[in-house]
Design a protein around this nucleic acid. Structure first.
Lengths: 135, 135
DNA sequence: CAGGATCCGTAACGATACTG
DNA sequence: CAGTATCGTTACGGATCCTG
């Protein structure tokens, strides 16, 4: 795969298919769901509480996407009240470890990034004096 | 960092800051820009052509975000017509290799994912008979 | 040529209500 | 409990115009 292999004339056209997989696992809730399931399996609303801040709709949608891609296994027990357990497949565990690795890298370099941001923002406020203006 | 460290009551609240870094580097154009710059430095519209399908606005925005995070170096030469070269900082090279690694993983597992999707889609069409209905 | 400002359509997202 | 359906909002992304 090389960078030029994209194909996006108008809007969200296909582009390279692996890009889609990447977007699924790095999606806002995808990362958190994978990370949570890396530890153990969860039920739906249990997962919802654990992740925190995710709507039912988005959680369901995220789980379906991840299930369709073969990353999570959905175990729906035919009981009343319903009980559904979600867990990682081997492929999903791989995915989870990948994104978790990336997340840990981001965390390790967070200080460097924040430092860079301060430098950047500082340099910009020189050009456009703010409350500290030395006019 | 653990999954519960998120904080998103209403909308796009802060959550864990490393999540932001992750979103920047895995963003739609962020990945492609980093990947492109991994090979060599580029000028603005050169990069625009290389990535393909990115609008001026989004490319500028992506580059600014990446520059602010300390991932890309912006070298604006004071000439007419303007010439601006973009390249990776050491930190940016690290980021690029990380996401590139993830992208390559996605590519390696693409077949497994697509196979999983077929299984998933196939199973669903059993429940809701389509054009192949065996009624 | 590099990019800022503006306008606008789309689609992602969140909240709520409802169903099995 | 585990979702689906609907609706309103928002912000993301693209096209265009314009300036240094």
């Amino acid at each position: 795969m090389n960078v030029s292999s994209v194909r996006v004339p108008g809007v969200n056209q296909p582009m390279c298919p692996s890009r889609l997989v990447l977007e699924h696992v790095t999606s806002r809730w995808g990362v958190l769901v994978l990370a949570a399931l890396l530890e153990r399996s969860y039920r739906f609303s249990e997962l919802r509480r654990t992740v925190g801040g995710v709507s039912e709709k988005m959680l369901a949608q995220t789980l379906q996407t991840l299930e369709r891609d073969g990353f999570v296994h959905r175990d729906a027990k035919p009981v009343i009240p319903p009980r559904v357990d979600y867990s990682l497949t081997p492929l999903g565990a791989e995915a989870a470890e990948q994104v978790w690795g990336l997340a840990r890298w981001a965390e390790r370099r967070l200080e460097a990034v924040e430092s860079a941001r301060e430098t950047y923002d500082g340099a910009r406020s020189q050009a456009a004096p703010g409350p500290v203006g030395q006019a």
